[in-house]
């Protein structure tokens, strides 16, 4: 597979996941501000922007601004709208690789984005976020249903899961920073679609430990950090069909494997007590994996600018 295409697929996976997760994070944030009259809006907004890697010098911030920056900014690939547009832009360059269904889904979503500001105005942000999640689900369903499990698919799923690790870590950090009151864990689990599973698993024992443990370590819930790392690891393994005899073959595999075992073999209590550094470490892991994957599979995918010279 062409390096450039592999890179595009990887980023389609990342951007779609990013759009979805950012929508979830924003949703939780807004619900919290609504539900808890004692929360300082400015502080909560600063905290959220900080976790999402946005500058927080100016202020004070309102939720409207946060929605603008993280939700509707067309030029930023880390906003919901921008990420979906970037996903579609990447897909344009590899239409002949992704299935027509996947392309049409991304393209239709992109055309739908033009309506986003109006939708936010008329039906509220929640409806818009709901729509984004639905579109992401359709996209995920179509990739699973219509793409063969070849290299391209592996890169897409790899991207999706790296991004998921990163975003789930950020989601947890917003709560870690906000002090993690019980009602806020509740909205958080709800927004992750994990509420029912969580209840069944912990039989109603709702506390922040269990919630963090669930989102971080649950082996069965697909949005947990552990599950995402495991999928990413298996994608990387499948991309290297011929492993050497000594250990694992690639840098990326080593980095992901180390992160996964770090979660797997450290006790939950230990992890939760040390949550801040653990989450920061996960974000770093993601950026390291990204570099390692780029180095190995996406060599030189940008155009060369030539200079000319002539001599007598």
């Amino acid at each position: 597979m062409l390096s450039r295409i592999a890179e595009s697929l990887y980023w389609i996976g990342r951007y779609v996941e990013r759009a979805e997760d950012t929508a979830r994070i924003l949703d939780v944030h807004l619900q919290r501000i609504l539900a808890d009259p004692w929360t300082s809006e400015d502080a909560a907004c600063r905290s959220l922007l900080g976790v999402m890697g946005k500058p927080v010098e100016d202020g004070p911030f309102t939720s409207g601004q946060v929605i603008e920056v993280l939700g509707l900014d067309q030029r930023s690939p880390s906003s919901v709208v921008g990420a979906l547009a970037a996903a579609r832009e990447n897909a344009r360059g590899c239409r002949e690789i992704i299935s027509s269904d996947v392309w049409e889904c991304l393209n239709a979503t992109y055309h739908g984005l033009a309506r986003a500001p109006r939708q936010v105005e008329s039906q509220g942000v929640h409806a818009f976020f709901r729509w984004v999640r639905d579109r992401s689900a359709v996209m995920a369903g179509l990739t699973d249903a219509t793409m063969s499990r070849d290299e391209g698919w592996l890169f897409l799923v790899l991207g999706r899961n790296i991004e998921r690790v990163d975003m789930t870590a950020r989601l947890l950090r917003t709560h870690e920073r906000a002090g993690g009151s019980i009602p806020s864990w509740l909205t958080l689990l709800r927004s992750s679609g994990a509420w029912e599973t969580f209840l069944r698993t912990y039989r109603g024992a709702l506390d922040d430990r269990h919630a963090a443990e669930f989102l971080l370590l649950d082996r069965l819930f697909p949005r947990s950090v552990f599950a995402a790392l495991t999928v990413a690891e298996s994608c990387l393994t499948d991309l290297e069909p011929d492993p050497g005899r000594a250990g694992v073959a690639t840098d990326a595999q080593r980095i992901v494997g180390r992160a996964r075992t770090g979660l797997e073999f450290r006790g939950p209590d230990d992890l939760i007590n040390d949550l801040g550094p653990v989450l920061a470490g996960l974000e770093k892991t993601c950026s390291q994996v990204n570099d390692a994957v780029s180095r190995r599979y996406f060599r030189q995918t940008s155009a060369v600018n030539w200079s000319s010279g002539a001599l007598a």
Binding site: V304, N305, W306, S307, S308, G309, A310, L311, A312
Partner: peptide, 13 residues
């Protein structure tokens, strides 16, 4: 008929 001409990728000559 330039005796030597070419293109290159890198810093300026």
């Amino acid at each position: 008929v330039p005796p030597l001409k070419g293109i290159y990728a890198g810093p300026k000559s």
